[in-house]
């Protein structure tokens, strides 16, 4: 158990920061990916336009 911990600690200290940077880059890239722009625009508008009637779609 202690060995496993030591291994993980070394790994976290060496690469932890890069993993965090990688994750944040991934999230930001996803959010700003040009191909996603239209989908997000639609999603943001969708709640304002929930159809003519207040009822489920099928």
């Amino acid at each position: 158990m202690t060995n496993l911990y030591a291994m993980l600690a070394i790994f976290a200290k060496a690469y932890g920061l890069f993993i965090f940077i990688g994750l944040s880059v991934a999230v930001i890239a996803y959010a700003y990916w040009p191909a996603n722009r239209e989908r997000f625009r639609k999603a943001a508008k969708a709640v304002l336009d929930e159809g003519e009637e207040d009822k489920p779609w099928r």
């Binding site: 959010a31 997000f40 625009r41 304002l48």
Partner: peptide
């Protein structure tokens, strides 16, 4: 009005 930035809400 729609959310100002949907992207920021995801981030």
């Amino acid at each position: 009005r729609p959310i100002y930035s949907y992207r920021i809400s995801i981030i």
